[in-house]
């Protein structure tokens, strides 16, 4: 009996109550969202302010005078090395490492997904265990090893390991994706005379492109942002990537040109923001399928 009454008199009230609740929810979500990105917008805007006025007018978002000089001053860089060089170095490290990570992870992911060989399960478990061996644990051991190899001061420690699929995240992501490709396709290709390698090149690899794009985007962003690796292995300023250069540039001990720092910081975020705007779909898919940290 109760239910009959409530069904009768709810529609009107529920709509009104619903819209108000909905509206409050929207305002809360929007408000927190603005607070979230406010610091980033603040930095972007500050890079166009006259450098002496940035902190005096920290409470104002809109520059009183729009200037571009911070970008010209910042580009000059430090120790006679321009940010053109720093960004090029970042690009070499990120692209080089990413190519290695994608090729090797795809190959190893294929072996785990389709291969039946002795020790596969153990190797897969070892691969998953690398998730618990992040860069910080390996920092000192790998440094001592690369020191023995004479690789310190070169890009080798930052690029070469990427070619050996030791990033469990990417292998895991790609293996999962490949497991979702129907095995009937392999069988059909095998009947048509494809070898194990042929199936990889002609069937699995082309169908795995979305997972490979996700892998390359994350790999690129993480390598572009990497600070600890270059800090330990790179010695000469001319070889610094942008992350190291920014740190040196923003040295609080010296009189810092904050306008120039914010200008170069803003520039250093352009690749990640561009990926975010145009290829967000692949990042979101990577996160929700493999739970990659962003």
């Amino acid at each position: 009996m109760m239910s009959a009454i409530s069904i009768k008199d709810t529609p009107k009230r529920r709509i009104k109550k619903g819209t108000i609740k909905h509206l409050i929810g929207q305002i809360v979500v929007l408000g927190i969202g603005i607070i979230m990105i406010y610091p980033l917008i603040w930095m972007f805007m500050s890079s166009f302010k006259e450098t002496g006025t940035i902190f005096e007018t920290a409470g104002e978002l809109w520059p009183r005078v729009w200037v571009l000089e911070n970008y010209f001053n910042g580009w000059q860089g430090v120790s006679n090395v321009t940010f053109g060089t720093f960004f090029t170095n970042s690009a070499i490290l990120s692209v080089g490492g990413t190519i290695g990570a994608v090729i090797s992870s795809a190959l190893v992911g294929y072996a785990f997904s389709r291969g039946r060989f002795v020790g596969r399960k153990i190797l897969f478990a070892l691969m998953l265990s690398t998730l618990m061996l992040p860069a910080q644990v390996l920092m000192v051991p790998q440094f001592l090893w690369f020191n023995q190899l004479g690789w310190i001061g070169t890009y080798m420690p930052l690029i070469v390991p990427a070619f050996f699929a030791i990033s469990g995240f990417f292998v895991f992501l790609i293996t999962n994706f490949m497991n979702g490709i129907p095995r009937e396709l392999d069988e059909a290709a095998r009947i048509d005379g494809c070898s194990f390698y042929g199936i990889f090149m002609r069937i699995i690899l082309p169908l795995s492109v979305p997972a490979l794009i996700t892998t390359s985007l994350f790999s690129f962003i993480w390598r572009w942002d990497d600070f600890m690796g270059p800090l330990i292995y790179v010695r000469r300023v001319a070889q610094f990537p942008a992350s190291l250069a920014l740190r040196m540039f923003a040295d609080p001990a010296a009189a810092t040109d904050w306008g120039a720092v914010f200008a170069m910081s803003t520039l250093s975020l352009v690749p990640a923001v561009a990926i975010f705007i145009f290829l967000q779909k692949y990042l979101v898919e990577g996160i929700s399928t493999a739970g990659l940290k962003g």
């Binding site: 190959l107 294929y110 072996a111 785990f112 039946r116 060989f117 050996f164 699929a165 194990f196």
Partner: peptide
């Protein structure tokens, strides 16, 4: 399959 796994 093992050869593909070799890099790892």
């Amino acid at each position: 399959a093992f050869i593909c796994c070799l890099p790892f």
